[in-house]
């Protein structure tokens, strides 16, 4: 047990100050999300005060036009944002890696098809595509995850393909082939461990991208209207008539914006450190 604690500490030691700040922010947001998830009082849906209250002891970030607590909404939104972000990133990362490994390893027609598909995907502007796909599939959290994954797999696929292509010429792969190794052995022993580090980095990049994309879709009204994601809060607040004529915007608009920025910046900090840590060459 002692050694485990030691290892965890050693792992944390590898992060820079910024990285540690990023981790701290994520932990706070997770706590907030956890609280709103397990408190079970539906604070984010049921009005608990007067409409448009200023921040106070009872409502730390004030209330919205229906008198619903904004902090509770931010907490609930964190659940949505983070689950959408991580789920779509992992989906895109795993899917893209699998496609990339196959294309890189088998080459030939498979490779040509994948490369062409990647080129097409990156040639189409992402936001319009996302809007069209979002409108087509309809608005639900699961669908948003699908849509974001569908436009984000290109990066991981390309990275995996390039890495596998370069690894294929390494002598240790030639040697393993000569011992009779099949695709399964090579993928398990050499290819997947080989692309893991760079894949981690590219997945982390997709996380922040996906969080912003989800907020964007929700803001445009393509999000799940039943959920209180940060994009939906923004959407409602900005659509409130005459919001800028009052002080409401200070808590109602800024709160989800700041939360979004904090999460994205925190992930960026962590991503930068992870990139440095997994690079064994240095």
């Amino acid at each position: 047990m002692n050694t485990r604690t030691f290892h965890t500490c050693a792992f944390l030691e590898k992060f820079s100050t910024y990285g540690k700040i990023g981790i701290a922010i994520i932990i706070i947001l997770i706590c907030l999300a956890g609280y709103s998830l397990f408190a079970g009082n539906d604070m984010h849906m049921i009005p608990s005060g007067e409409s448009l209250e200023r921040p106070s002891i009872a409502h730390w970030l004030g209330t919205d036009d229906l008198g619903i607590d904004i902090l509770a909404q931010i907490g609930h939104g964190a659940t949505v944002s983070m689950s959408v972000g991580f789920a779509s990133a992992i989906l895109a990362g795993v899917g893209g890696s699998v496609i990339g490994i196959f294309a890189g390893y088998f080459g030939g027609t498979a490779d040509k098809i994948v490369t062409a598909l990647c080129d097409i995907m990156s040639a189409i502007p992402q936001l319009p595509l996302m809007i069209v796909l979002g409108a087509f599939f309809g608005s639900s959290t699961a669908n948003i995850i699908m849509v974001i994954a569908m436009i984000s797999w290109v990066g991981p696929a390309r990275t995996a393909r390039a890495k596998v292509l370069s690894m294929r010429n390494e002598t240790f792969i030639v040697a393993a082939h000569s011992y009779g190794a099949g695709f399964a052995h090579l993928a398990y022993r050499h290819l997947i461990p080989g692309i893991m580090p760079i894949m981690l980095v590219s997945v982390i990049r997709i996380v922040s991208h996906a969080i912003v994309a989800e907020a964007g879709l929700s803001f445009l009204g393509l999000g799940d209207p039943l959920s209180k994601s940060w994009g939906v809060i923004l959407n409602r607040s900005l659509n409130f008539p005459g919001i800028y004529f009052t002080d409401f915007w200070k808590w109602w608009i800024l709160s989800p914006l700041v939360a979004l920025m904090l999460l994205v910046v925190a992930i960026a900090f962590i991503g930068r450190d992870v990139e440095r840590i997994v690079d064994t060459k240095r």
């Binding site: 390494e170 002598t171 240790f172 030639v174 040697a175 393993a176 000569s178 011992y179 009779g180 190794a181 052995h185 022993r189 050499h190 461990p193 080989g194 064994t280």
Partner: peptide, 27 residues
């Protein structure tokens, strides 16, 4: 066969045991 470039002939991310054991694992 033993190859020219020792750095490319063995996967540096694996442990020594995994490297040497690989042919037996495949077998």
């Amino acid at each position: 066969m033993v190859f020219q470039d020792p750095l490319s002939a063995t996967n540096e991310a694996l442990s020594i045991e995994q490297i040497v054991r690989e042919p037996l694992d495949i077998l």
